[in-house]
Design a protein around this nucleic acid. Structure first.
Length: 621
RNA sequence: GCCGACGUAGCUCAGUGGUAGAGCAGCUGUUUCGUAAACAGCAGGUCGUCGGUUCGAAUCCGACCGUCGGCUCCA
């Protein structure tokens, strides 16, 4: 499988949007001389101005937020007297096209902070922006009688904005991205240089909708959700549970090979446990509410760490036993806010492929982190997933409520993780404010079909919990020492992993994961008996095979099997029954002709055991 | 959680104040068929829930529940 470019670039990602003041005042710009990225950014940002111009026509009292370019176009945030409706977008877009035809020049001018404060007196958000600007760096831009406080980055005139744009959606957005601030109405636009590129973008959106795990999950009967079971509480149907079981068996075997020990721990604990671990202070709003009986408080666990710490604590350990790798497919419960629960990728009850590695010290922790990265590369190689990036997720020293306060601990952890990434020569980026509350981590970020960034793998170095729980082991010197814990998830939660795989494979699972691996299709009723024999023979190799004995024509059965994305259709009629064979049809491929059943069994076993991404000379997808 | 839209049969959808519809899926029967949909019949809904307006509500209003698109948060 080739690496697939993200279908839809992340919406929030800002492109180049920084222009020195001197350059901003320059009105003569040769667009063709600019790199495409900057040219597009200028076009998109200019289009945002034109949108604001049209919006002021619709609502003269509109309060203006910001209107930056984004990777697929632009947006502009407004506070408006009423909610926008889709018809407003039609009207606004028409006005914008009128402004483009007018070829109005964008004219930048500089002004003092005092002048700007007077000029923008009626625009609270602009005043808020102005407060952060240095004297001498205040500029505004005028076109067609519309002026915006703006640092620049435009095209020369509105005629240079390509007509290949479209207002796409109305959304809500908090001012400056903080939920403490007022919520504004955001209008998104898509803008590309050519109509062909805009078309391609729209086709990508369509493609993303086709790959959506919620749609495919329903069509293939992988999972379901019920109002009365609750949002984010996934019901795995037999087909989806089969995929999950294969993944679980596989990862547990890989872990056993690498010296992990599996445990089973309860999904409920006394709140006391989480008070001690620190979850209570940093995580409580994300936990299910307390259950109280007989004067005791219990909670559903949001994380497995404290339970695995109990496993470590159940006896006194020697440095000779370490590292001790404790693993569990552990159920966790997190009270996600109602607006963010979605399909299987964002749920409230989930199973994490979790493990905690208890290490004697920095050196051992470092080597364990390396081992985890190697396991991760192996696992994702087998799954054929290549569309990911490493992120070093750091704490935010300025945020004392979100992270435990212990600067030396954070420094040690961050340095350790950075060293491992550098030694492994893995390209990574650093992100402040993305750490766990108890320590920094390496996250591996994947992109979903819809273009959203999701964390799958996470590796964390933790000096905090060993301290909270007073963990000890006996060292070579006979003294007591505090271990370091490496937390790690490889497959992520089973929910999120299966959601990602559905989208990655578009429901066309490789043989080893396919819920039904082959369906035997008798041509007429008299072939049903032979079909059952073929199926029995394959089932004796633990292949998941069905017989389609329905009263349908062969064509109909083939069509249904294709729609169910079953890897192999084994058509049997008189000729095949005679020869002890079946005509093999490959999903998405053609008829391979009759093949002896023993050979089919051998080939399918091989593909399954090798976890092949290919189906009998065809790509699995 | 916040803003907005949406909620009609298992699924996809039509129906905008006057007796609930279609296609697919399901069931029954006929057909026994060579690589992406045979034919016919039957059955299936207190229109998300609760309340209100009205002679009359799927349709208008309100609250709640859920879904979707964003924002914020996150495995």
């Amino acid at each position: 499988m080739e690496p697939r470019a993200p279908l839809v670039p992340a919406k929030g990602a800002l492109s180049i949007w920084r222009f020195p003041v001197a350059e901003a005042l320059e009105s003569q710009i040769d667009l063709t001389a600019l790199p495409k990225e900057e040219r597009l950014a200028r076009m998109r940002h200019s289009a945002a101005h034109v949108l604001a111009e049209a919006m002021l026509e619709l609502f003269p009292d509109a309060e203006l937020g910001i209107g930056p370019p984004i990777d697929t176009g632009f947006y502009y945030d407004f506070r408006l007297p009423r909610a926008l409706v889709p018809d407003d977008l039609v009207w606004l877009e028409e006005r914008m096209r009128g402004s483009l035809a007018g070829r109005h020049p964008f004219v930048m001018s500089a002004l003092t902070k005092d002048e700007a404060a007077r000029r923008w007196a009626g625009q609270p958000f602009k005043l808020d922006l102005l407060a952060d600007l240095e004297e001498g760096a205040v500029t505004q831009c005028t076109h067609a009688g519309f002026t915006d406080l703006c640092r620049g980055g435009h095209v020369a005139h509105t005629g240079e904005i390509p007509a290949s744009f479209k207002l796409t959606s109305i959304a809500a957005a908090y001012w400056r991205g903080s939920e403490k601030n007022p919520q504004l109405q955001r209008v998104y636009g898509a803008l590309f240089e050519t109509a062909e590129e805009l078309d391609a973008f729209e086709r990508q959106l369509e493609e993303a909708r086709r790959r959506d795990h919620r749609r495919i999950g329903r069509d293939l009967k992988l999972y379901d959700l019920f109002d009365e079971v609750g949002p984010g509480h996934v019901v795995w149907l037999p087909a989806g549970a089969t995929i999950r079981r294969e993944l679980e068996r596989w990862i547990e075997d890989l872990e056993l090979d690498r010296g992990y020990q599996h445990v089973r721990t309860p999904v409920v604990a006394k709140s006391e446990l989480y008070k001690r671990s620190g979850h209570w202070d940093h995580y409580q709003e994300a936990m299910y509410p307390i259950m109280e009986r007989e004067g005791e408080e219990y909670v559903l666990r949001p994380m497995n760490c404290p339970h695995h710490i109990m496993v470590f604590e159940s006896e006194l350990h020697s440095y000779r036993e370490m590292p001790i790798r404790i693993a569990e497919l552990g159920n966790m419960h997190r009270w996600e806010k109602s607006g963010q629960v979605s399909g299987m990728s964002r749920v409230r009850i989930m199973t994490l492929n979790d493990a905690h590695i208890f290490c004697t010290g920095i050196e051992q922790a470092e080597s364990e982190v390396e081992g985890v990265l190697q396991l991760m590369e192996e696992v994702y190689g087998v799954l054929g997933l290549k569309n990911y990036r490493y992120r070093l997720s750091l704490g935010d020293p300025s945020d004392t409520t979100k992270y435990v306060h212990n600067p030396p601990m954070w420094e040690k952890g961050e340095a350790l993780l950075r060293r491992v990434l550098q030694r492994a020569r893995l390209p990574f980026h650093e992100a402040v404010g993305e750490a766990a509350f108890y320590g920094p981590k390496i996250d591996v970020q994947f992109q979903t079909a819809a273009g959203k960034d999701e964390t799958l793998v996470t590796i964390q170095v933790d000096f905090h919990l060993p301290n909270q729980f007073g963990l000890e082991f006996v060292g070579e010197d006979g003294e007591r020492h505090q271990p370091i814990i490496v937390h790690r998830g490889i497959l992520s939660t089973m929910e999120r992993m299966v959601a990602l795989l559905i989208e990655e494979y578009e429901g066309n699972f490789p043989l080893w994961l396919a819920p039904t691996q082959a369906v035997v299709i008798p041509i007429a009723d008299r072939h049903v008996e032979y079909a059952r024999e073929v199926a029995a023979q394959l089932k004796s190799h633990r292949l998941r095979v069905e017989v389609d004995a329905r009263n349908e024509r062969m064509n109909g059965k083939i069509r249904d099997a294709q729609l169910r994305k079953i890897p192999y259709m084994l058509v049997v009629g008189d000729r095949e029954a005679e020869a002890g064979a079946a005509a093999v049809r490959v999903r998405g491929g053609g008829d391979l002709g009759a093949v002896p059943v023993v050979e089919i069994a051998a080939e399918l076993r091989r593909q399954r055991d090798e976890k092949s991404l290919m189906l009998w000379n065809h790509p699995a997808q």
